[in-house]
Amino acid sequence: MSEDQIKNLEKEFEARIARDEKIEPKDWMPEKYRQTHIRQMSQHAHSEIIGMLPEGNWITRAPSLRRKVALLAKVQDEAGHGLYLYSATETLGISRDQMYEQLHTGKAKYSSIFNYPTLTWADMGAIGWLVDGAAIINQVPLCNTSYGPYARAMIRVCKEESFHQRQGYEIMIKLANGTPEQKEMAQDALNRWWWPSLMMLGPTDDKSVHTAQSMKWKLKRKTNDELRQQFIDQTVPQADLIGLTVPDPDLKWNEERGSYDFGEIDWDEFWQVVKGHGPMNKARMKARVGAWERGQWVRDAAMAHAEKKEERKQKQAV
């Protein structure tokens, strides 16, 4: 294809996005669009899969049968999200095995928040309330993103995430209204998860390398700082309502802006965790890679069985 032809295609492509048309797998797309989407969508899928581990950690110890069933269902939803997102990413010409390979070798990232440990039952509440809450803020705009398969997957994902968020908040309500010990457990979880949740919305706009391009492709509709402000404004009143204190001494309602002012985020900690030095980075990867390696003989057997079955069928046909 000549350079001019490519330029024309690119122009037409950008015009389609500007008209809010969806880009579908078989449509022509610039290589950078494809690669950016593979990066973001697979990272999203990996986050769902790694995210199963910190919550899976409490399935066997959930405090009641009702909570156990709800937690199991939630973690199962996450596995389901991983499955749709891997499938949606496969439409861009990469296989699930290749994506796993990138995850297992550390080439692909996942949401850093899952590198923090879940130490008490209240962490199940805090994750649902804060982590899923921040995820929804990140993800709702993606229901209108330009890439069709991603946008459609996100519609379903967001519905389930908003259910998880309510479920998490409900755990916190119960604890906050419970015994002093339970309330303390809830406050401690909020203290530990608050700042990592703010970091989850990404580096500040001046440090974010992907924002400009992603906004153009509608892979992002608001900047990280706007999303963070939205999360804080929405979450602080929820904490107030159940008598928990957001662990930020600088947090203050700003009448003029109609928003909360908040304290400095420890970005050193953020980058440390992103670079693999968070409390649980090694353990999460070890669990993931371990499960994959221990499952190799199982996957080999399933493949071998399927091939043999096909062979037997063909022989019978002859």
Binding site: L72, A73, Q76, A291, R294, G295, V298
Partner: peptide, 27 residues
């Protein structure tokens, strides 16, 4: 329930969690 997130494939993870859910529902 112990296996959640540690199965040989994502599909088996989903199936095992689902079976666990069924069983606790029965309980």
């Amino acid at each position: 329930g112990e296996l959640c997130g540690h199965g040989p494939t994502l599909e088996t993870d989903i199936a095992c969690t689902n079976i666990s859910l069924d069983l606790f529902g029965q309980v």
